[in-house]
């Protein structure tokens, strides 16, 4: 088992040092201590209620840790956030909210001093980002009217338009069909290496593709090489054994959904 180093790499993209977070006295993340190298592709897995979302929010600066520090590209989190592209699980938009796909993509160029509307150069950048994902045709359509796969493509374009160095995807396969999943996978394959990629997913089949290490979150946070994700480890993490199928094999993997109470406590190891 490759236990996490204490921010050992010289210039990590992400560095968590003794990060703990509790909500109403309940510890959600306990002493997370790990780093992710620049250019690395890594997955965050764990049972529902185990702290994946909290870890993600800490990473994005949406929550502040009770103790410890988080650095992104060697800068304190508050200054590092504009280098992060984020693709949420979904954007539950009221159908009455009138906004087109291209305007959503343009949001990816926002910054705190941004005034007036999108400039022509920004609009061109947004169109280019959509076009790169083969979605230029939906640019002028209302976002709420797009299919699940198209919506996710637009959100990916929004995350990429600002040329981030770190891309974070939250449960990217939840609302899309198999074809859209394939398109997403090939896009992520193209991006791997050119930026740091963190994918939060309960879908172990998706996790297995092109990933070197996985972050297992169940209150405690541990990093393992993907090869170590055997039946024993997934039994401890999810409360049931989950067979991992590597890319190219039959898609026999079961999605892991386990109650947090049923999973192991890594700290007890």
């Amino acid at each position: 088992m490759n236990e996490q180093a204490n921010c050992s790499c010289p210039s990590p993209a992400v560095c968590f040092q003794s990060v703990s977070f509790a909500y109403e006295r309940e510890t959600i993340i306990d002493e997370a201590d790990f780093d992710i190298a620049a250019g690395e592709s890594i997955c965050v897995i764990g049972p529902n209620g185990g702290g994946k979302t909290t870890l993600l929010k800490l990473l994005l600066g949406l929550l502040q840790p009770n103790t410890g520090s988080i650095r992104i590209f060697d800068k304190a989190l508050a200054q590092g956030t504009t280098e992060v592209g984020y693709v949420p699980q979904s954007l539950d938009l009221d159908r009455r909210f009138p906004i087109t796909a291209i305007d959503i993509v343009g949001m990816g160029l926002l910054h705190k001093n941004k005034l007036w509307g999108m400039r022509r150069s920004e609009r061109e950048q947004a169109w280019q980002a959509l076009d790169n994902l083969g979605l230029a045709a939906v640019g002028k359509k209302p976002f709420a009217h797009l299919s699940g796969g198209q919506k996710q493509g637009v959100l990916l374009a929004r995350a990429l338009v600002g040329n981030p160095r770190l891309l974070v995807l939250d449960e990217p396969t939840t609302h899309i069909d198999a074809a859209a999943q394939e398109r997403l996978e090939s896009e992520l394959k193209r991006l791997r290496g050119s930026l740091t990629l963190i994918t939060v997913s309960h879908d172990l089949h998706f996790v297995a593709r092109g990933i070197g290490r996985v972050i297992c979150v169940n209150r405690s946070v541990r990093i393992h090489p993907v090869e170590a994700l055997d039946l024993e480890l997934t039994q401890r993490l999810f409360g049931q054994p989950v067979a991992l199928v590597k890319h190219g094999e039959a898609q026999a993997t079961r999605h892991a959904h386990a109650h947090p109470d049923a999973v192991d406590r890594e700290a007890e190891r």
């Binding site: 949406l62 956030t81 992060v84 949001m107 926002l110 929004r158």
Partner: peptide
């Protein structure tokens, strides 16, 4: 949430 991530 996205607005906060962008530093707004």
């Amino acid at each position: 949430a996205f607005a906060r991530i962008r530093g707004l």
